[in-house]
């Protein structure tokens, strides 16, 4: 086998890493664009608008508070 396998390997690496980064960079741009668009045109309903959502978010807040308290306790 006279083909230089190492050179071949480096070609694979350049193409592979290039594609992975290209894909992820496009993905990052899209993610930022999406969140910008969604925040502008479809803002999340504010807490208190509907009682159902409010209670759910309150629950989340309580859970967050409890988690933080546990974390604090563990550090102490």
């Amino acid at each position: 086998m006279e083909t230089n396998l190492i050179a071949e390997g480096f070609k694979f690496m350049a193409l592979g890493m290039g594609t992975v980064f290209l894909f992820l960079i496009i993905l990052i741009v899209c993610m930022n664009a999406m969140s910008a668009i969604l925040h502008k045109y479809f803002p999340e309903p504010q807490p208190g608008v509907t009682p159902d959502v409010a209670s759910k978010q309150d629950n989340k807040k309580i859970i967050a508070a409890i988690t933080a308290a546990i974390a604090h306790h563990r550090q102490a």
Binding site: F12, G16, V20, F21, F23, I28, M31
Partner: peptide, 16 residues
């Protein structure tokens, strides 16, 4: 996400 991309260097480095 870029960090997740960089870690794939392990794949192609090992290929070489």
């Amino acid at each position: 996400a870029l960090l997740g991309g960089a870690a794939q260097f392990g794949i192609f480095g090992t290929l070489v």
